[in-house]
Amino acid sequence: MRNAETGSTVDMELEEENTVQEIIEGAAGYWEKDSGAYVLRKGKRLLRGQQTVLDAGIGNSDDLELIPDPEGG
């Protein structure tokens, strides 16, 4: 898992039934992120929050990136 804002990385152990939302919240909590909106990227694809690890096709040693969703205008 990569933090898009800082470039720092951490390994994350996931089960097939974990959802993308849980991954986002776990990573945001680990990096003590502000309480804003975040999305998760795998390659060039944003992952839907309700998808599970299995649905999203996340496999061993895949790189995921946690990205803040810019809310400002």
């Binding site: 309480s35 804003g36 999305v39 839907r48």
Partner: peptide, 11 residues
């Protein structure tokens, strides 16, 4: 809406 998840609704 398709790209939003629980963190958006919490915000």
């Amino acid at each position: 809406q398709c790209s939003m998840n629980r963190t958006h609704y919490r915000a």
